[in-house]
Amino acid sequence: EVYKVKIKIERVLPNGEKVEEEITIEVEGMSEEELLALARELAAEPGVRIKEIEIEKLPP
């Protein structure tokens, strides 16, 4: 199964400015739980906050 994972994050820059970013990846052969863990890892940097995680199962 192939999933499209869209992660919206908010990053706080050293000057205090907040910037929103969106990361989209396609992943194959992982469960939804593994995808959530991967998304959290991607956003685990200091000053980064996850705003939204969207997981979509793509048709075969």
Rank of each mutant, 00 (worst) to 15 (best):
E1T: 13
E1Y: 13
V2L: 15
V2G: 06
Y3A: 03
Y3R: 03
Y3E: 00
Y3F: 12
Y3S: 03
K4N: 04
K4A: 06
K4D: 01
V5Q: 00
V5S: 00
K6M: 14
K6Q: 04
K6R: 15
K6E: 01
K6H: 10
K6S: 12
I7K: 00
I7F: 15
I7A: 01
K8E: 01
K8V: 13
K8C: 06
K8H: 11
K8W: 10
K8I: 09
I9V: 07
I9M: 12
I9N: 00
E10M: 02
E10H: 02
R11I: 04
R11Y: 03
R11M: 03
R11K: 07
V12R: 07
V12M: 04
V12F: 13
V12C: 06
L13T: 12
L13H: 05
L13S: 06
L13V: 04
L13R: 09
P14R: 03
P14T: 11
P14W: 15
P14M: 15
G16Y: 03
G16A: 02
E17F: 12
E17V: 07
E17R: 04
E17P: 02
K18R: 13
K18D: 02
K18V: 08
K18N: 15
K18H: 15
K18S: 14
V19Y: 06
V19C: 05
V19L: 11
V19P: 01
V19R: 11
V19N: 05
V19I: 14
E20I: 05
E20Q: 13
E20A: 03
E20F: 03
E20M: 05
E21T: 06
E21V: 03
E21S: 07
E21C: 09
E21N: 06
E22G: 03
E22N: 13
E22M: 08
E22I: 07
E22C: 15
I23M: 13
I23R: 05
T24E: 06
T24A: 11
T24V: 15
T24M: 14
T24W: 05
I25L: 08
I25S: 03
I25K: 05
I25F: 14
I25C: 13
E26I: 08
E26L: 09
V27K: 08
V27S: 07
V27M: 11
V27R: 07
V27Q: 04
V27A: 07
E28Q: 11
G29M: 06
G29H: 10
G29C: 07
G29E: 10
G29K: 11
M30N: 13
M30E: 12
M30K: 11
M30V: 15
M30H: 07
M30C: 15
S31V: 15
S31P: 07
S31Y: 11
S31H: 06
S31E: 10
E32P: 15
E32Q: 12
E32W: 14
E32A: 08
E33L: 11
E33G: 05
E33W: 11
E33D: 15
E34A: 14
E34L: 13
E34W: 13
E34V: 05
E34T: 09
L35I: 14
L35S: 08
L35P: 02
L35A: 13
L35W: 05
L36V: 09
A37E: 08
A37M: 13
A37Y: 12
A37D: 10
L38C: 14
L38S: 04
L38E: 03
L38I: 15
L38M: 13
L38F: 13
A39F: 07
R40W: 15
R40A: 08
R40L: 10
E41C: 13
E41G: 08
L42E: 01
L42I: 09
L42S: 04
L42G: 01
L42F: 03
L42V: 14
A43P: 02
A43C: 10
A44T: 11
A44W: 14
A44C: 05
A44G: 11
E45M: 14
E45Q: 05
E45K: 06
P46N: 05
P46D: 06
P46Q: 13
G47W: 05
G47A: 04
G47E: 08
G47S: 05
V48N: 03
V48R: 01
V48W: 09
V48K: 01
V48G: 02
R49S: 06
R49F: 07
R49W: 13
I50P: 00
I50H: 00
K51R: 09
K51E: 05
K51D: 03
E52G: 07
E52W: 13
E52V: 07
E52Q: 09
E52F: 12
I53L: 03
I53W: 04
I53D: 00
E54C: 12
E54G: 10
E54D: 07
E54T: 15
I55E: 00
I55S: 01
I55D: 00
I55T: 02
E56I: 12
E56K: 09
E56P: 02
E56T: 15
K57V: 12
K57R: 05
P59Q: 07
P59M: 12
P59H: 08
P59T: 14
P59Y: 15
P59I: 15
P59A: 14
P60S: 08
P60A: 08
P60F: 02
P60H: 14
P60N: 09
P60G: 10
